[in-house]
Design a protein around this nucleic acid. Structure first.
Lengths: 229, 229
DNA sequence: GGCTATCTGTAGCTATAGCAACATAGATGA
DNA sequence: TCATCTATGTTGCTATAGCTACAGATAGCC
C-alpha cells in the first residue's frame, strides 16, 4: 500500500539523500497511516492532540487560522510531497496550533515523531540524516514565516499587493503569471478584505502598472511596482 | 576566556543534556568568537553574509525589520543564554534576513554552523544531542513566529492589546506585571502607531478593564480582557 | 536645585480600508 | 439552452487608526 506512494515520498525533503529501498525498509518502523479526505473536509482542528505530522500524497491542503467571527488567515497551501504540522510536532507542544482543511480531494500520510528522535529502525545510519533533513526543513519553514511577517507588517494594502505581485514575478521569472489563489483566498492570505483589495487592484491597473484577468496577472511597469514596496 | 561564560552557556538550550566539562571540551572545535557592543550598535545588517549564529552572553539584543521610511517591526528581544540567527543559519540561505541591534551594552558569542552538521569534535556522542536540541529550538521559534502571525492577523488594535496583555498575564501568572518594553517598542511590536495605541490603552482603562503606569500593568477585569480577543 | 532628555498622554485632522449591498460575468449542470 | 451558482468587480458609508503637534511628567545629570 505504501509502495504506491514511494515516488512521492522520494521527492519529500525528509528523505533527501536516501534510496527508495531505504525509505521502504524504514516504513514499518514509522507505522504510517494514510487517510483520505474530500474537498473542504476539516483534517485537523486547532487543539487536536498531536504526536505526528502530515505528508501530502495527493491533492492540496490549506493550513489556516480562523477566529470566532469567521475571519480567516491562510498560513500556507501544501501539495504532494510537502509536509505540514512538523514544526509544532518537533516543538513538542502536544497539540495542533493551526487548522488544516482539504482544498481538494486528497490523501495524507501521517508519521509519528516518536521514531525520529528515538532511533529503532533497521537502517540506523539513516536516522542521523533524517534529523538533519528535518532541521533544514523546519528552519526553512520558520524563515518563510519570518518573511510572511514582512507582508503582514506592511501597513498599506498597496504595499502588500506590490510585494506579493513582485514576489510572484520573481518566482516565475515571468511578467505574466497565474497566481495559485482566487480573490477570496488572496485577500485571506494578505489579511485584507476582498472588496478593498479589488478596489486597490483596480487603482494600480488604472495607473498602468499592472493588468489582470481573474488569476492571470501581467506586470506592465516593473519599476513602478518595485517602488511601491 | 570562554570559561568565564560557561554558566551562561550551560543554561543555553543547545547544550541541554550536556555537562559543563563537555561544553568546555567541544568549544575549541567551534572556534567561537566573542564580540562586545554598546547600546544601539548595529550588530547585524540585513543581507550580511551568514555562516554562524549568535548566543547572547550579557545584555539584550533586538531582532527587527525596518523599511526605508524608518518603520520598525520588532521580531523579538533576546537576553543571556538566548540564541538569535540560528533559524536563518540552518535554513542555509547564506545571509542574515533581519537586522540585529544592541538594546544595551552587551556581549555576544558567535558559533559557526559548519561544525554542527559535520561532526569533528572530541565528544562525538554529543553531536547527535546538539542537532536534536537545535531541532527543538528552531521548531519552538518557528512556533513563536506562528503565534506572532496571530497577533498581526488581528485587525483591531483593541484585540492586539487584549491578546498581548492576556498573554503577559498568563506568562507571569500575575494580575500585575511589568512589560519588558516601553511604549514605542510595544507599538513597534504590535505594529501600530504609538499615539493610537496610547489612545486605545486609555479607553480600555476608562472602561475599568485595566490599569497601568508606565511599564506596569494591572488587569482589573480578566473576563472582559479575555472577551476582547 | 535646575537643566535637559526622554517618555508618555492628548487632540484634531485625514486617509485608508472594512463592510454591506448590489451588479456583472463566467462556469456548471440539468 | 436555460437556470443557477460562484467568482469578481463596484459603490457609498463609516469606523478605525495613522500622523503631526504639543503638553505634561519623569528621570538622569551637572
Amino acid at each position: 500500500m505504501i509502495e504506491k506512494w514511494l515516488p512521492i515520498l522520494a521527492r519529500c525533503g525528509i528523505f533527501e539523500g536516501l534510496q527508495t529501498t531505504d525509505i521502504l525498509d524504514m516504513m514499518p518502523c514509522f507505522q504510517p497511516v494514510v487517510r483520505s479526505y474530500a474537498k473542504d473536509d476539516v483534517i485537523i482542528r486547532i487543539g487536536d492532540l498531536q504526536d505526528n505530522f502530515g505528508v501530502v500524497l495527493e491533492g492540496e491542503i490549506i493550513v489556516q487560522k480562523e477566529d470566532y467571527a469567521g475571519n480567516r488567515l491562510i498560513i500556507g497551501t501544501f501539495g504532494p510531497a510537502e509536509l505540514f504540522g512538523e514544526v509544532a510536532a518537533f516543538a513538542k507542544i502536544g497539540y495542533w496550533p493551526n487548522m488544516v482543511v482539504a482544498n481538494s480531494r486528497c490523501q495524507v500520510l501521517f508519521l509519528p515523531i516518536g521514531k525520529f528522535t528515538k532511533p529503532c529502525c533497521k537502517i540506523c545510519n539513516a536516522h542521523q540524516l533524517l534529523i538533519e533533513n528535518m532541521l533544514r526543513i523546519v528552519s526553512r519553514k520558520a524563515l518563510i514565516m519570518n518573511n510572511r511577517i514582512s507582508y503582514l507588517k506592511v501597513k498599506s494594502m498597496r504595499e502588500k499587493l506590490a510585494a506579493f505581485l513582485f514576489e510572484q514575478h520573481q518566482m516565475t521569472g515571468n511578467r505574466t503569471f497565474m497566481i495559485p489563489m482566487n480573490r477570496e483566498q488572496l485577500a485571506d492570505y494578505l489579511n485584507v478584505s476582498r472588496p478593498s483589495m479589488s478596489r486597490e487592484l483596480g487603482r494600480i491597473r488604472d495607473e498602468g502598472v499592472i493588468d489582470f484577468y481573474r488569476s492571470s496577472f501581467t506586470i506592465k511597469d516593473i519599476e513602478a511596482l518595485r517602488r511601491m514596496h
